[in-house]
Simulated scan of single mutants.
Amino acid sequence: MSTFHMGLIINPLAGLGGMVALKGSDGVAAEALARGAEPRAEMRTRQALECLQPLVGRIEFLTFPGPMGADLLEEMGFAHRVLGHLENQVTSAQDTRHAVDALQQSGVALILFAGGDGTARDVCSVVRADQPVLGIPAGVKIHSGVYAISPRAAGELVRRLVEGGLVRLASGEVRDLDEAALRDGRVAARWYGELTVPEEGHFMQHVKQAGMESEELVLVDLADWLSDSWEEGVRYIFGPGSTLHGLAANLGMETTLLGVDVIQDGRVIARDVSEQQLFDLVDRHPARLLVTAIGGQGHIIGRGNQQISPRVLRALGLDNLRVVATKRKLGTLEGRPLLVDSGDPELDSAFPDAVRVWAGYKEELLYPLGWGD
């Protein structure tokens, strides 16, 4: 049986800024590490590769030294060849671009890369139009349609490909937000190009639908309902996004558009918190979590809100989660389920098959929930 040759690139810095409330990692990796951020890209890649371990004898990876892939492949027992070298201990966008160029010159069938939208931009800047690639989601903001919905979904999609299953190719858009603008509370997105990606049903995420929520009257209704039902002494965590930002504004509170904020007894007690700050606020204290869905994509956990980590979710209890989404936003999903990708597959599998969605004044919907199985 022939060997399947595949490229692997890990951006070790991807996702560093999420848990420490930096809205991304581009240009702030050193600051994120100084704040106590822990690298997560290797862990996310490991989750994808675990799906391929039954096929370990049928795959040879081509990769790059140390944290860009070689260390993990060696540890997991995959056959691999190491290309190139690293100039510095801390990797850069140029390292990613060099890796893509070398891998496609080596004729690999697929380039698997772990990162976020910035990594997708780097891949897009040098890859040939006909070179199939697939992203393992490991960044903070993932708007591009070139990523699987979770690391495990990426692994399952590759497994299907190696086993000879029919996997069609499609074009996936690469989009990215200006992280400096994000940190100032402004959303500025750009289209950077398209990549050829394997696409198979529910494995791939859709491009995030941009734009501010326009159903102001629905948010007014939701604010009226919430103001009527505040629980004294309970901490309400407002996740990022225009829906919850607009909801807070209608409650007369100033929250951060793209951060995580905590409200108690009608006032904001913590703004733009890190993961550690959030855990300290909810551990052993009654709390409710409000999140919204990314329009067109459906993620409620694991995209732009990494501060809401697995340990935070466990401290809160999954029964204290509520999704806030207008029917218009749910309509952009076209019947696809809401998604969770916390980084902890065991926790993801513990989520219910459907969640309650607050969609209007005293109007709750039951909507299906999925994860990267």
Score class of each variant (00 low, 15 high):
272 D>P: 05
227 S>D: 11
325 A>K: 00
235 R>I: 07
268 V>Q: 03
241 G>K: 00
238 F>C: 03
256 T>K: 06
292 T>D: 06
231 E>Q: 15
260 V>N: 04
267 R>T: 15
279 F>C: 04
222 L>F: 04
308 I>Q: 08
264 Q>L: 05
296 G>N: 05
284 R>M: 13
266 G>L: 02
319 D>N: 11
289 L>G: 13
302 G>R: 06
323 V>N: 06
251 L>D: 09
249 A>T: 12
327 K>H: 08
249 A>Q: 11
215 E>R: 00
231 E>R: 12
283 D>L: 13
276 Q>K: 06
317 G>F: 09
321 L>I: 13
255 T>V: 15
301 I>C: 01
270 A>E: 09
240 P>H: 02
306 Q>T: 11
224 D>Y: 13
232 E>A: 10
331 G>C: 06
231 E>M: 08
275 E>M: 12
331 G>T: 04
296 G>C: 12
294 I>R: 00
307 Q>V: 15
318 L>Y: 10
301 I>H: 01
323 V>K: 08
287 A>F: 12
214 S>N: 00
266 G>Q: 01
273 V>P: 07
270 A>R: 11
288 R>Y: 06
217 L>F: 10
277 Q>I: 00
219 L>D: 08
285 H>S: 06
246 G>W: 05
230 W>F: 15
235 R>L: 04
247 L>C: 07
251 L>N: 10
244 L>S: 00
252 G>K: 07
326 T>Q: 12
239 G>W: 10
256 T>Y: 07
263 I>E: 07
280 D>C: 01
218 V>I: 15
218 V>M: 05
251 L>V: 14
229 S>Y: 01
271 R>E: 15
268 V>I: 14
273 V>I: 11
291 V>S: 02
326 T>I: 14
280 D>I: 00
301 I>G: 03
271 R>L: 08
288 R>H: 11
293 A>E: 02
251 L>F: 10
299 H>Y: 15
248 A>F: 13
294 I>L: 13
266 G>H: 05
275 E>Q: 11
236 Y>S: 03
215 E>G: 00
290 L>R: 00
281 L>R: 07
331 G>Y: 00
263 I>R: 01
307 Q>M: 12
317 G>V: 12
232 E>I: 14
210 A>T: 13
258 L>W: 15
252 G>R: 09
234 V>F: 10
301 I>K: 01
276 Q>Y: 04
326 T>N: 11
263 I>F: 08
274 S>L: 05
211 G>A: 05
290 L>D: 04
218 V>F: 09
284 R>V: 11
228 D>T: 14
322 R>N: 12
238 F>D: 01
305 N>R: 08
210 A>M: 14
